[in-house]
C-alpha cells in the first residue's frame, strides 16, 4: 500500500501488528484496513485479540512490533484526537458513583468542549432521563449507551466500538444499527465495530475483518464471504488448472484464506467431474456450509485452538 493511500483521512490501518503478553501472543502479524464511509465488522471469537488490537490502534497499549494508524498517523500524533476519534472499549469505563451527566462533563472539559455537548450526547443515545443518576444503577444496555455518548462527545469522524451490541436488547441493536449506518452512509465517517457473534452485526456491516488467535482469517466484503460460504470447497495443489477447467461451467471461483478454493454456481458432482476430466489432483471436495454464522465459526475454528489462558 502506498503511503498516500495509508494516509487517507479517516482510514484505519493495521500493519503487521503483533502484541505479546508474557507467553501469550494476543495479536500475531495482523494487517488490515478500514475505510471511511463504511461500517466494518471486526470479528473473532473471545480471546481472538480484538480488544488488544483496538487498544494498540488507540494508543493505550504499545505494539510489540508493527503499527496501527488512523488517517496515516499513530494515535498519539493525531492533532485533536478527542475531536477526531471516538472509541469505546467494553462498556466499563465509568466511576460507579458519578452521574452520567458528570461523567460526560469531565470529558467535555478535557476535550475543551462546552458542557452543552454532554446533554446533546445524552439525548442522542436516549439517556436524558437517567442523566443525573449515578452509573452504579445502570443496566449493561444503559452503560453501552453512555459509552457511546462518551465516544460521540467530540463529534468524531472515526468511531471504534468494542462489542457495542453486548447487553443491548433487540430494539437497542436495531437503534444502534440505524445510528452507525447513518454515520457511514450519510456522514461518510469510518465505523469499526467488534463482535464475537457475527449475527449481531451481520445486518449492520458492509465489510468484515475476521481474526482468530490474533491472525487475519478474512478481510473483505461481507457479501463475498457469503459467496465463499455457499457452493463447493475444493482443495487441490493446482488451483489455477482447476479454475481453467471450471471456466466453461460459468462459475465463480475464489481462493479461500485457508488455501482451498470455493466454487459457487455448480454442484459438487459437476465440479468433481470437471476435475476428473482435466486430470486435476483433488485432496478434498465438499459442499460449503450454508449459513454465514457457520462459515464464520468454521473459519475461526480452522485457525486452531484458542490461545492459552493468560498467565
Amino acid at each position: 500500500m502506498s503511503p498516500e493511500a495509508t494516509s487517507i483521512e479517516g482510514r484505519i490501518v493495521a500493519t503487521d501488528l503483533t502484541k505479546v503478553f508474557g507467553q501469550v501472543k494476543a495479536v500475531d502479524g495482523l494487517s488490515f484496513s478500514v475505510e471511511p464511509g463504511s461500517v466494518t465488522g471486526f470479528l473473532g471469537p473471545n480471546g481472538a485479540g480484538k480488544t488488544t488490537t483496538l487498544r494498540i490502534i488507540l494508543g493505550l497499549a504499545a505494539p510489540t512490533s508493527g503499527s496501527g494508524t488512523i488517517s496515516g498517523v499513530t494515535y498519539a500524533h493525531l492533532p485533536a484526537p478527542g475531536r477526531t476519534v471516538g472509541a469505546v472499549l467494553e462498556a466499563t469505563s465509568f466511576h460507579p458513583g458519578r452521574s452520567a451527566r458528570n461523567h460526560l462533563r469531565v470529558f467535555c472539559a478535557a476535550a475543551g468542549l462546552s458542557d452543552k455537548r454532554a446533554d446533546e450526547a445524552l439525548e442522542l443515545v436516549g439517556l436524558t432521563q437517567a442523566a443525573r443518576f449515578p452509573v452504579r444503577g445502570f443496566s449493561l444496555g444503559m452503560r453501552q449507551r453512555l459509552g457511546l455518548a462518551t465516544a460521540l462527545l467530540g463529534n468524531p469522524r472515526v468511531l471504534l466500538l468494542d462489542e457495542p451490541a453486548n447487553g443491548l436488547d433487540p430494539e437497542g441493536i436495531a437503534w444502534l444499527r440505524g445510528l452507525l449506518r447513518h454515520f457511514a452512509d450519510v456522514d461518510g465517517r469510518t465505523v469499526l465495530v467488534s463482535s464475537h457473534v457475527l449475527s449481531e452485526v451481520e445486518q449492520t456491516v458492509d465489510r468484515v475483518v475476521i481474526i482468530a488467535r490474533g491472525r487475519l482469517i478474512y478481510e473483505g466484503r461481507l457479501a463475498d464471504l457469503e459467496g465463499a460460504s455457499a457452493g463447493v470447497v475444493v482443495r487441490t495443489p493446482t488451483p489455477e488448472q482447476l479454475s481453467a477447467a471450471l471456466a466453461p461451467l460459468n462459475v465463480k471461483v475464489t481462493g479461500r484464506p485457508d488455501g482451498a478454493v470455493a466454487v459457487v454456481g455448480a454442484t459438487p458432482e459437476a465440479v468433481g467431474h470437471a476435475a476428473w476430466e482435466a486430470h486435476i489432483e483433488v485432496h478434498e471436495l465438499r459442499s460449503g456450509s450454508s449459513s454465514l454464522e457457520e462459515t464464520f465459526l468454521r473459519l475461526t475454528a480452522d485457525a486452531g485452538d484458542p490461545p492459552a489462558a493468560p498467565v
Binding site: 488507540l58 494508543g59 493505550l60 494515535y75 498519539a76 493525531l78 484526537p81 478527542g82 476519534v85 472509541a87 472499549l89 467494553e90 466499563t92 469505563s93 465509568f94 466511576h95 460507579p96 470529558f107 478535557a110 476535550a111 462518551t150 467530540g154
Partner: peptide
C-alpha cells in the same frame, strides 16, 4: 488508582494521549 480500577483511564487517555 480509581482510573485503573474503573477504566476511566481509557477515555482519559483517548482524549489526551500525551
Amino acid at each position: 488508582t480509581t482510573e485503573f480500577r474503573h477504566f476511566t483511564s481509557r477515555p482519559t487517555f483517548l482524549i489526551e494521549p500525551r
